[in-house]
């Protein structure tokens, strides 16, 4: 075998040039196991993304490399078409060596599947038709306002110090609760992020690329920077989930963004605001959450935690 070709085959099995016969066998059975079942932990999260047909293609690739490396006598005796049957791999250890039988048991769930055995084919996958949910309104479209950035501003000059930070934000509705719970609909990056251009005299060139995405955005909203009051809480207002939500909404903040900034699950914020106490099981952690969240909102954290935890204890 040509050296280059050999290297190629080895790399298919994730092997370096110094791989021994044993290494080849080990790698081979590792990958056969990996791609044979959708229940291996490394594959499982992608089981929809890497369907059976694709795994079969990968297996054939691996099989080809293996055969090429060990020669036809190390012949693959796996019948890939019988993917959902227990498989017996016979690894030939070479002349005189005892033949080793490795049995790969598919997990129970797999055996229960009564899927027809798909013939092992090499055909290219045809691109699937993409289902698009036409009914999803693009909420952003409605709220967008076209703003041209004047040339002068692009040059970062003559901007008075007070408006040094100009917040340009694509408005976006806070997803409703169901959506939040599923956590499934992630906004398209460019819109989900409040975009801010900093006008600074000493802006070095190398950052133009980072800022570039803002300037090139076709539609942007200019929004006044929200002034956060130091502590707007009346001593006699009880801090409830609803109150926190009201404050948040008045500041045009999104749970998702807050979650990211505070590095907490945004779902917890939704639960806190809706007082879904049954989902908030750890009072110690909850107290910490309330404190961070209310501090972030500019509220008195001790009072917020005190009020909220009192309600939590009485309702729970």
């Amino acid at each position: 075998m040509k050296k280059r070709k050999k290297k190629e085959y080895l790399s298919i099995l994730e092997l370096g040039e110094k791989a021994s016969r044993d290494d080849i066998e080990n790698a081979y059975s590792h990958f056969v196991k990996l791609y044979s079942s959708e229940y291996s932990p490394e594959i499982h999260p992608l089981k929809e993304e890497i369907p059976k047909e694709e795994r079969k293609k990968i297996l054939s690739d691996i099989d080809k490399a293996y055969k090429a490396l060990v020669g036809e006598d190390g012949v693959n005796r796996i019948d890939f078409s019988a993917e959902f049957e227990p498989q017996e791999i016979i690894l030939d250890e070479g002349e005189g060596a005892a033949i080793e039988h490795v049995k790969i048991e598919p997990s129970k769930e797999v055996q229960e599947e009564s899927e027809p055995v798909v013939e092992f084919e090499f055909t290219d996958e045809t691109i699937q038709k993409i289902p698009v949910d036409e009914s999803i309104d693009d909420i952003n479209e409605k709220n967008e306002l076209i703003v041209e950035i004047p040339e002068s501003e692009k040059e970062y000059n003559e901007i008075p110090d007070e408006i040094e930070h100009q917040v340009i934000e694509m408005d976006e509705d806070i997803p409703d609760e169901d959506e939040e719970m599923e956590g499934s609909i992630e906004e398209e990056p460019e819109i989900s992020e409040p975009q801010v251009i900093e006008f600074e005299e000493d802006l070095p060139d190398e950052n133009v690329d980072m800022d570039g995405s803002i300037e090139e955005g076709p539609e942007i909203i200019v929004q006044e920077e929200v002034v956060v009051d130091k502590d707007p809480v009346d001593a006699d207002v009880e801090i409830t989930g609803k109150y926190l939500k009201k404050i948040r909404e008045s500041r045009k903040l999104k749970v998702r963004d807050i979650g990211e900034i505070l590095n907490i699950e945004y779902k917890s914020i939704v639960h806190i605001e809706n007082e879904k106490f049954e989902k908030l099981n750890d009072p110690g952690f909850l107290r910490w959450l309330i404190k961070s969240y209310s501090k972030f909102l500019g509220l008195n954290e001790e009072k917020s935690a005190g009020d909220y935890m009192r309600r939590y204890r009485s309702k729970k």
Binding site: V167, P194, V196, E225, V228, R251, K252, D257, I261
Partner: peptide, 11 residues
């Protein structure tokens, strides 16, 4: 976190 939350993220 003590900075203005709207702008902390990006600017």
């Amino acid at each position: 976190r003590s900075f203005n939350p709207l702008s902390v993220k990006y600017i």
